[in-house]
Design a protein around this nucleic acid. Structure first.
Lengths: 214, 214, 214, 214
DNA sequence: AATGAATGAGCCTTCATTCAT
DNA sequence: GATGAATGAAGGCTCATTCAT
């Protein structure tokens, strides 16, 4: 009698696979991709390293999936918030910033890993897609805003990119020492400031470039 | 004739050291810090791995020097351009963007490694200083602009950070596929767009957030 | 049938570990600690270098275990013999010498490595304990002997140390060429002589220091 | 005109050579043979590593010479003291112990290195000679003592060896932790105790091996 | 004959991947 | 299908020795 992949078998396999991805994600969220050892992932998933290789042909492959999943989730959340914001584009922009900020500040390491950490060609490709999706989100907003006359006419791809750069750097960037968080400004304040920054950046009104008259 | 530690000897040592740094930088510029193997660096410098250790106590130390050197150069160039731009702040901002852009587009991998690639504690510390210097540059410009009434009143540290994020992401970010550069917009155009983006972002005039009347 | 961490597995692991220790000990017994290369140890144990590291976190750790094991064994044997010798202290002393001698002459290099060869801080600490245990044994005997009036009153720590020095040097010391063992005195004779030497050294009767009258 | 080794040239060479040996000895006396790096020796001698190799074909060769020299010096001093002690053998023995003790406690590291530290086959051979010389000294004393009826009849080689073992272990042995030297007994006391130990060990009077009557 | 920078073999250690059970 | 011990390639670093100057 030939072996038959019953529904139960199949489901159990899927669960295992998912457990591995989840475990890996947890570790990545704590130590970054570089700190995600195959053995530890397997252990955290209640499985073995060897078993892992029957679900993924590669460590890279697994990490890529972790990336994909985490990124997809982020996107989902942000997209939902953006959709819910309705019109005009300014409100959508604000929702984008606010949601992105919430996610990023929640899990800084994961956010950073998703955005910046170099892993492998595979993940880099994945990241490209992720960023493009984000950029696409931004592009939609910008395009809509332009159409609505809210935003000035501009080269949309770049605007979206710069937008994401500004937001992510301001939030996840490792620019300032993490240590001294005592007198750091409140998140609410930061988000509002970033929102203003972005709103201005896209705005129609031409910026004042000359010194103000006294 | 006895061996003599002449000026020539000294110079050759300096050259060797410099050659190592240069070789390392070349490799970093191609494969990133992670891809810079000691043996390969030495070989590329026409030396042996062992020899490398008489110039640097460490691989990390060498990489840190590569970073320092490259970063210092970038800063120098950008600072000079900014200073030369004079008043008002808007012009300095434009100079910042233009120069940064020129450097970044020249060597994408290097720029990315300098800005983002995690290496070691040592280099990360170096990077912090580098980024802070950049941020400082930005802060100076923003502060000046606010004083001149050109820029709106805003939380300067964040503005500077977001600024750098926008610029670097737009330029070095791996958002767009590097492969397909056929119908990419001209650098000149990109730089102008980024400049506009930044100028608006900081500008005093409140952005229009409502739909324009038809 | 799923892989199962059975008692057999566990036993095999223990065996592997033991094999490594044994292999290491063999090599140490032949070439000393310094001559015990990780790769060679693993190979001698029928394993790979990498595998070694799942049983020991360190080369030093393994060597320390080799030391501990060998030393513990030596101590056990000697202690047992000493206990079995009963009273008075003189008999215990003789047992000490005899047993120590037997062990030492059996494996000269190992005995020497245990007693003298510098390895690492870890092993040195282990050795300290080993030597102190030996010294403690000696001190017990000397103290007892003094109490019994068999040995003269003396500074016990030094007596014990000197005792061990005399014995070990006479036996393991590299004083005489190892090569020419042809006309060497019998072990039995040596042991008896050392015993006499030690007995006298500790004895109560004051030594004659003046020339005997003719 | 052929190169001629003038007296001056020759003398200068000898001085260089001697300087190297001296420098090496200083370093060995501080860090042991293992801690004597070729480069550092050369530097300490005001020479270069390369130059060192025109005086010694080997690091081992140099270290062997260091050993030879230091050992010879020790021997010379001890021999002189022993000779000066005159008769009977008991006095010579005391002189041996006292002088040896003085030297050993003066430079513990050097003494230990000479007596115990493993270096190379070459040095080990040298050490053999050294120890044999010491043993010879001991043998002479013991033999004389036996002839004078001061010491009991015994197997001289072993007695001498055990003697040296007792002395050196008591003095240089790393048995007890070096750290706690606060309430350590005075050197004078130690030397006297060792002397007594040795005197008894060799003495004619048969030791009491039965418990003393109460 | 002197120099000291260059060499490179050799060491320990890590970790993704495989495969006998 | 599952397991996890075994593997072994690869990497950084040290230091005695050599050799162009």
């Amino acid at each position: 009698m030939p072996y038959r992949a019953t529904a139960g078998t199949r489901r159990r396999a899927d669960e295992r696979r998912a457990a591995l991805v989840r475990a890996a994600q947890t570790i990545v969220a704590e130590h970054g991709f570089a700190g995600a050892r195959v053995t530890e992932i397997a252990q955290a998933a209640g499985t073995s390293a060897g078993s892992l290789y029957s679900y993924f042909s590669n460590r890279d492959e697994l990490l890529a999936e972790v990336f994909r999943r985490a990124a997809a989730h982020e996107l989902l959340v942000v997209r939902a918030a953006v959709s819910a914001a309705g019109e005009p584009a300014g409100r959508r922009l604000e929702a984008l910033v606010r949601t992105f900020a919430g996610r990023a500040l929640h899990g800084r390491q994961l956010a950073w890993s998703l955005l910046f950490e170099p892993v492998s060609t595979l993940v880099d490709a994945e990241r490209l897609a992720f960023r493009q999706a984000y950029a696409g989100l931004g592009e939609d907003i910008v395009t809509a805003g332009i159409g609505q006359g809210v935003f000035r006419d501009q080269y949309v791809p770049l605007a979206a990119t710069a937008l994401m750069g500004a937001i992510s750097e301001a939030l996840v960037g490792r620019l300032r020492p993490v240590a001294d968080e005592s007198d750091a400004p409140s998140i609410e304040f930061l988000v509002r400031e970033i929102g203003t920054f972005c709103a201005h950046a896209l705005a129609r009104t031409p910026p004042t470039t000359e010194e103000s008259p006294r």
